[in-house]
C-alpha cells in the first residue's frame, strides 16, 4: 500500500476541509449582534405593547364562554366544554383518552388556596383562565430553529405557520404549557374571516391579532359576560388596562403574572391568585 503522503490528494482534501468549514460557518458569519438582541424585549415607550389583566375574582364556575368562543373564532377543533365536562364527571379515564388531542388555547384551571391567614378564604375556589402569556422574553421564540415563532413589534408572540417545521421544541420550552401541536390533522373552517389551520405545526393563543389589526378586542375579552378580562396597551397610561392596574395598586391589591420568577416576563397579569 502506498504509504507516502500523496501531495495531490492532500491538497485536494485540505481544500475540501477549508471549503466545508467555510460553508458550514456561513450562518455564524451572517449572524450579528442585533440578531441575538432581537430575542430580548423591544419594549419602548412609543410602541403599542399589548397586555391582558385577568381578574379571577369575577370568574364563575360553570361558565366556559371564553373557551368555546376561542375555538370558533380560531377554527380550533375540539369538543365544546359543557359536554366535555359532563363526560369527565361521568368517566374520567375514558374521557382522558377521548379528549387527549383536544386543543385549548385558553383553558380554565380551578384553584384552591393551600394556606391563607384569612380563614374565610381558605376553602374558597377560584377559577383562572390560562392562556399564552405573550412573554417579554419568550422562550418559545428563543428556541425556534427557523424563527417561525417570533414576537411582533406590539409584543404578541405568534407562529408563522408557513415556516414552522413542526419540531415541537417550543412546546418543550414553554413553561406554561400554553403551546399546542395539531396532532390530528383535522381542519375545520367555521370562521371564514380567520385562515384555516395548517396540520403539523405549532400553535398557541395569539391575542386574536387578526381582530386587533381590525381594531377589535380579542374574542375571549369580547364574550366574557363578567368582564374578567381587561385588554389594552400597557405603554399607554390612559388605556383601560393601565387605569385598572393603577387602581388596583392604589388599593394595595397584588397584580402579578404566572411564575414571574422564571424570568419570562409574562404580559398576562392576574388579580386574586
Amino acid at each position: 500500500m502506498n504509504d507516502k503522503i500523496n501531495r495531490r490528494n492532500f491538497l485536494k482534501i485540505t481544500g475540501l476541509i477549508t471549503a466545508g468549514t467555510a460553508i458550514s460557518s456561513i450562518p455564524f458569519i451572517s449572524m450579528s449582534a442585533s440578531d441575538i438582541l432581537k430575542q430580548t424585549s423591544n419594549k419602548s415607550v412609543n410602541t403599542t405593547w399589548w397586555g391582558m389583566l385577568i381578574d379571577v375574582r369575577d370568574c364563575e364556575a360553570e361558565c366556559y364562554d371564553c373557551i368555546d368562543a376561542c375555538r370558533t373564532e380560531n377554527n380550533v377543533y375540539g369538543s365544546f366544554s359543557k359536554e366535555k365536562n359532563l363526560d369527565f364527571k361521568k368517566d374520567l379515564t375514558k374521557s382522558l383518552e377521548k379528549y387527549k388531542h383536544d386543543i385549548d388555547w385558553i383553558r380554565k384551571v380551578t384553584l384552591k388556596r393551600k394556606y391563607s391567614k384569612d380563614k374565610t378564604q381558605f376553602s374558597k375556589e377560584v377559577y383562572a383562565p390560562v392562556l399564552c402569556n405573550h412573554c417579554e422574553t419568550p422562550s418559545c421564540a428563543l428556541v425556534c430553529p427557523v424563527e417561525a415563532t417570533y414576537q411582533r413589534k406590539d409584543g404578541i408572540v405568534i407562529v408563522d405557520k408557513h415556516r414552522c417545521i413542526g419540531c415541537r421544541y417550543c412546546l418543550i420550552a414553554c413553561p406554561y404549557d400554553a403551546r399546542f401541536f395539531n396532532m390530528m390533522g383535522k381542519e375545520e373552517w367555521t370562521n371564514k374571516s380567520y385562515p384555516k389551520r395548517i396540520h403539523g405545526v405549532a400553535e398557541s393563543c395569539h391575542f386574536c391579532y387578526h381582530r386587533l389589526d381590525e381594531g377589535k378586542l380579542p374574542k375571549c375579552v369580547e364574550v366574557c359576560k363578567k368582564k374578567v378580562f381587561t385588554f389594552g396597551n400597557l405603554n399607554d397610561s390612559k388605556s383601560s388596562i393601565s387605569i385598572k392596574i393603577n387602581e388596583l395598586s392604589e388599593n394595595k391589591i397584588m397584580v402579578k403574572g404566572i411564575r414571574e420568577d422564571l424570568g419570562t416576563g409574562p404580559k398576562v397579569y392576574y388579580v386574586g391568585i
Binding site: M31, I36, P145, R163, F181
Partner: peptide
Amino acid sequence: LDWGRPDRFINPFIYFNPASMFS
C-alpha cells in the same frame, strides 16, 4: 421524520436562528 412538516426540511438552513440550541 418526527417533524410535523418534514417537507420543510430546508427551512432550518434558510432561516437560521443563532439563539436556538436546535439551530
